[in-house]
Design a protein around this nucleic acid. Structure first.
Lengths: 335, 335
DNA sequence: GTGAAAGCGCTAACAT
DNA sequence: ATGTTAGCGCTTTCAC
């Protein structure tokens, strides 16, 4: 039999109210002997309070929903770990959900999370269509947007990165190195960060007075395999380029592989810049020049922001933009 | 104001019992008009049932705890994704927890999960010391062990892989290729899979009549950096070897890097076998020969097994051992 | 310093 | 075919 607060109260010879007070550390007015007796009995009977019952009255669950495209994506598992670490520090748990950027899954998950009465949601939204989100209507669950900056009502905060600036710096670096014909192997352009990165790409070209060519943009996916196949195709079609600006490090790593297989030297013949700075960027040959994103910090800060809102400790800014950083390694060189 | 079942009942002019029945599809005895009226009103008012209240009476939460060392480890995020996919299929959610293989964190998390009344826990336990797990005493939450096969009472199931056999095949492959002096760059030997892999390593040596040497075993961690540093050290100390059997692919990839930097050719001078077959194994140069583990399936099957137990649909085996597979690529060669 | 009691939103016998 | 009612285990106000 599960032991409840009633049992503890009975064994301790006090009321459940008193036990409840010591459980929740609202025990300023409880005498030391009583407190101790209760604590001992709780330990003795291995008492574990029932959160569902508590939540029913407090309207708080101490759990947070994390809705991301795919935990297997290095960017997102770093983010997830950052979020979980902060949540754990504050006594919260995290329910994670993989949407694969599909709206139906997003809707289903958000609505499940609201049913479960999560205290808040950290959300990477697939696209702008989110505005039609029915479930958010009568709902008071605060949502923090991460990674993608989308206009969605009822959003309580946003944590992003300046993707445009990051991309701009990456492409500018390529240009300064002397690469001239830069292909952008982009992630899905339905997605906010990719759009911003494209802007940054254009801005850098402009600054260097290099005409922008639509045919240098290839829209792909963050699924494994796309980068490799695309570069193979480029080569086969004899499309001309001397540099690749990649939507993420995975694409970049795959690009390097395809190039190497074709006997093309990186960075001598083709320069490559990735995005994210995942751990692997450092382990491939040549080590990847990339735009670092503070993925762990994004998750960590998002939970921090959420908890600040929930516990009203501090007034928080509703929008935080973290910095990207150009990390120059061996896949680019001055020439 | 949040709308409750009472409100719906009132607006529909029926009792809460009736509403409850249609919510839970126990509505065989509800007339079609009533059912429809209720459904419409629920939609109209955007009614979302409160799971805490429901859980309090049903003792079920439709949520599962997932306790793993670190979501950033490729093996575990594949596993996590498999678990989440299956959970989602069945209408469950997953709370994930990172223990970093630390017992205190394991205990804290398990106890949080029990408080939250999760229906079950998928657990990668750090070590045998788990036997002293206090919190499991008065507890009826079913636990499925994954990855590590530990004797822990109250375990309802186990999903593992034959690490001994996997390692045996890997080392045997090395031996058959003609490599003779194989160093084992092991993960933490406090951990079940590492111990088993060591056994497999020994068994293969034995079969080839090669004496086992303790000094060929290096115990490390799965933290990034260890493999690289260790190989650097091996080289510096002029320790002799012509093959490396690695505790996981990360170690193997780092080893390749260290070797390359020293101008040592893989697989010509040194053969390398990894473990796990993470996606990156295929992207490094040379592509990694490795022992594949079905990490996604482990997670998926674990949730499947758990739900079978919870919903008593099928009698399940209490222990499942999935297969490893030797994947021969380019980091080993016959010579 | 401690307790009585109401109620959180829902489900599930049991009635009707 | 539908309603009545008694909890589930806890917190919280108010009274003592």
């Amino acid at each position: 039999m599960k032991v409840t607060i009633k049992d503890i109260a009975k064994f301790a010879g006090v009321s459940t109210a008193t036990v409840s007070k010591v459980i929740n550390h609202k025990d300023e007015n409880i005498s030391q002997p009583t407190r101790e007796k209760i604590l001992n009995i709780m330990k003795e009977y291995n008492y574990i309070p029932n959160t569902a019952a508590r939540s029913l009255v407090t309207k708080k669950t101490k759990t947070i929903g994390l809705v991301i495209p795919d935990i297997r994506n290095p960017f997102f598992h770093e983010l997830a770990r950052g979020a979980e670490d902060k949540a754990n520090e504050e006594g919260y748990n995290i329910i994670f959900c993989n949407t694969d950027d599909r709206i139906e899954k997003e809707e289903k998950y958000v609505s499940m999370l609201i049913e479960k009465m999560v205290d808040g949601i950290i959300f990477t939204a697939a696209s702008k269509r989110m505005n039609e989100f029915e479930h958010l209507r009568n709902n008071r669950v605060p949502i923090i947007l991460v990674d993608r900056d989308i206009d969605l009502k009822d959003i309580k905060g946003k944590i992003t990165v300046d993707n445009c600036l990051g991309a701009y710096e990456g492409v500018k670096h390529l240009l300064s190195c002397g690469y001239k014909n830069i292909i952008f192997l982009s992630g899905p352009l339905s997605t906010h960060p990719s759009i911003e990165r494209l802007k940054g790409y254009k801005r850098a070209l402009e600054e260097f007075h290099i005409p922008y060519k639509e045919e240098n943009i290839f829209e792909g996916t963050y699924q494994s395999g796309w980068g490799y196949e695309t570069v193979k195709m480029l080569l086969k079609k004899h499309i001309d380029f001397d540099a690749l600006f990649c939507g993420n490090d995975l694409i970049a790593i795959e690009a390097v592989k395809a190039l190497k297989e074709a006997g093309i030297k990186v960075p001598k013949e083709v320069g490559i810049v990735g995005f994210d700075d995942i751990y692997m960027a450092t382990l491939v040959d040549p080590e990847l020049t990339t735009i670092r994103q503070p993925s762990y910090e994004i998750g960590y800060s998002a939970v921090e922001m959420l908890i600040n809102i929930l516990e009203k400790k501090v007034k928080t800014k509703e929008k935080v933009v973290l910095n990207t950083e150009l990390i120059i390694r061996k896949s680019t060189m001055h020439r």
